[in-house]
């Protein structure tokens, strides 16, 4: 089974992705992670305005049989959370890099992204 790993994103070993947008940085979990968890039934996300340091636990994803913490790939301030996931957690399964995004961070130091995995390195980790 192969998983989608967009080239332009950066990744963590704990299966989060981060991608630059017009307004800041978006964060979510990878295609591999959503597949490992199975049907996601619940997502818990932080409040807007919360400040996160890289590696902080910021939320939880739950499937029927497993619970997984989600960690901030980089430091930043939570500018927005994807409230659509509260009613439709399956978006994380259906479109992990698109409609299944979780956070939008601002005040991110772009240099921190250099410490993350690129697509090739992440793909190698999941093989």
């Amino acid at each position: 089974m192969t998983f989608e790993v967009p080239d332009e994103f950066r990744y963590t070993e704990s299966h989060e992705w981060v991608a630059e947008t017009d307004d800041g940085y978006r964060v979510g979990i990878t295609d591999f992670a959503q597949d490992e968890l199975g049907d996601i039934v619940f997502v818990e996300l932080p409040d807007e305005g919360e400040e996160l340091a890289a590696g902080d636990e910021f939320g939880v994803v739950e499937s029927i049989k497993a619970v997984s913490d989600i960690y901030a790939p980089v430091s930043g301030t939570v500018a927005a959370v994807n409230e659509a996931l509260f009613d439709a957690p399956e978006l994380v399964n259906d479109d992990p890099y698109g409609e299944g995004w979780m956070l939008e961070l601002t005040d991110v130091d772009a240099d921190e992204l250099d410490g993350l995995l690129d697509a090739d390195a992440y793909e190698a980790q999941t093989e």
Binding site: F42, E62, S63, I64, K65, A66, V67
Partner: peptide, 12 residues
């Protein structure tokens, strides 16, 4: 919602 329970979430 068994993910709340000990057989899945153990110490948490």
């Amino acid at each position: 919602l068994q993910t709340r329970e000990q057989h899945i979430r153990r110490e948490r």
